[in-house]
Computed example of a mutant assay.
Amino acid sequence: MDESVGRVVVTGGSGKLGRAVVRHLVESNWDVINVDRIPSADPIAPYVHVDLTDYGQTVSALSAVDDRYDRVDAVVHLAAIPAPGLAPNPVIYANNVTASYNVFAAARQTGIRNVVWASSETVLGLPFDEPPPYLPVDEEYPARPNSSYSLGKHVDEQVAAQFCRWDPELKMIGLRFSNVMEPADYAAFPGFDADPALRKWNLWGYIDARDGAQAVRKALEYKGTGLEIFIIANADTVMATTTSAELAARVHPEVPVRHELGRFETLLSIDKARRLLGYEPEHSWRSTVD
């Protein structure tokens, strides 16, 4: 058996993206611990029940848990109420921001210098009722949170920036994941062309959970220090026949398009992730749906 790459705690490893991340990291020879409030339906890694809004529990989970493990090399923080509207606004904000702060602070306290966490495409300005400054959107323009959920994600990014300022050896990578999909979700995609406005809210983007997991692994492997933020989406849109150029012209005709668009090219730019992480999506919905 190959030697382990290192031990990583994955918070929220029982969730939709978390399950794919845990599986991919196990297959990539990481020693994975799933930290969550509920066990996984796909239990391929040891599970520890932790409430991340409790700082003491969080520090303990990133330090040692009896006979399970005695050190942690990296943390992937995915645990959160995963979208706007799933709880009252103050509950979403308080839960998500508190959990993120606790994970970031506990990692620093326990000497973990490799932190990857789930930010969100919502920070880009979803649902884009106000047009974006240009297309494809990227990481370069200021955040535009439009919900308590996305405000919390924006706060996470600002907190991470200060943690990295305090500790120059720390690496923190925020991944602005698009709408997470699994193969079972793809049967609905051909119907989106009937009304392109249905998916205008996130510029027709998505991320296959398996490609999201790839991005997490590559972020863990990245050798830099300091804060980096990446949009993580698939290379194509959810649309079956309507091209990206047609979508841009129809829905946001006043918005500058910065380059000639490929037929179904994502309007959530992944150029930075490609350049710095070597990220390249491998799973398009088009190869799944007949």
Rank of each mutant, 00 (worst) to 15 (best):
A61H: 07
K153Y: 05
L52F: 06
P168K: 08
L277H: 12
V72P: 08
L261S: 08
S178Q: 11
S63T: 15
D31E: 15
L227E: 05
F230Y: 15
L227W: 03
A79G: 04
S120K: 01
L17T: 03
A197V: 04
Q158C: 09
V216K: 01
E139V: 13
H49E: 15
Y69G: 09
L170N: 02
D66Y: 03
E260I: 07
S14T: 06
W201N: 11
V26S: 13
V32M: 13
V76S: 05
V115S: 00
N234M: 10
I81R: 00
A41K: 09
A107K: 00
D211A: 11
V72K: 12
T288M: 13
P136D: 06
V155Q: 05
A74V: 07
I33G: 10
P190W: 00
R108H: 09
R71L: 05
T98C: 12
F192V: 09
G174S: 01
R263H: 09
V137H: 01
D193Q: 12
P132I: 09
Q214V: 12
L78S: 01
D138R: 06
H283M: 11
P136E: 08
V22T: 10
T288D: 06
W285T: 03
V251F: 14
M239W: 02
R19C: 14
Y69M: 06
L277Q: 09
T98A: 12
V159T: 11
S147G: 05
I229N: 07
A74F: 04
S28C: 11
P90F: 11
A99H: 08
D167M: 04
A273C: 11
A194T: 12
E260F: 01
A20P: 01
Q162I: 07
M172E: 03
A245H: 05
L170G: 00
L17F: 02
N95P: 03
V65G: 03
D167S: 06
A87H: 02
V238Y: 02
V137P: 03
V115L: 07
M181R: 14
P133G: 09
N146Y: 01
M181K: 14
H24I: 03
Y186A: 15
D42C: 03
E3Q: 12
G152N: 03
D31Q: 13
A87D: 08
A161Q: 14
R7Q: 10
S14F: 04
A61M: 09
S148F: 09
E130M: 07
